[in-house]
Amino acid sequence: MGLTASEIVERVRAALPDDIIVATEDDVAEADETKKKAPETIDPFVLAKPESLRKVCEWLCYEPDLRFDLLHCISNIDYPDRNVIQVIYHLDSIRHKHTFTVKVDLDRADPKVESMVPLWPAADWHERESFDLMGVIHTGHPNLKRILCADDWVGHPLRKDYEFPEEYHGIPCGPYVTEYANIPPEHEVWLKEFEAEDAAKRGGPSS
């Protein structure tokens, strides 16, 4: 087995102190007192500055001890209350058998980050998906267009404030709104009432 994530975090901090914002749980609390909602995770990670993401990733990719040669996944999360779109790069090393996570916080209004395609060709489709569903613009991507949705789709569906369109080219496509959704809001209360009644009935008034 390779290095643990905490060890990698230490190395990144030592090597590139200016390019990362926060790295661990404690750092989150320290560095960003105002943004209380910043996620803590079970696995340690590195939160890179958007402008130096490429540098961090290149370092992770080429550093002989680390050699993150496999880009496993690019995820993204929308945090409207923090006005942040977070892009998460899950890295993996086939040679050293360790994994690592690099995160980057982008401005929600103008989410732009450098493309990782020159580093890992695997980023191609992941970044297209990220653009399609979350609207992150990966600058320098050779073919940044929608991948899952249709080319003329409006909006980025995975954003939390996305509103589903009523129709697409005349095809009704909104959420399946029918009679099937008419569960009365008080149904939980009714169940509790019933259970209380039932218990009273079974256990008798004494219980």
């Binding site: 990719c61 040669d69 086939i94 580093l119 060709p121």
Partner: peptide, 9 residues
């Protein structure tokens, strides 16, 4: 004989 993947960049 794990080849160098990163060398492609």
């Amino acid at each position: 004989a794990a080849p160098d993947a990163g060398a492609r960049g």
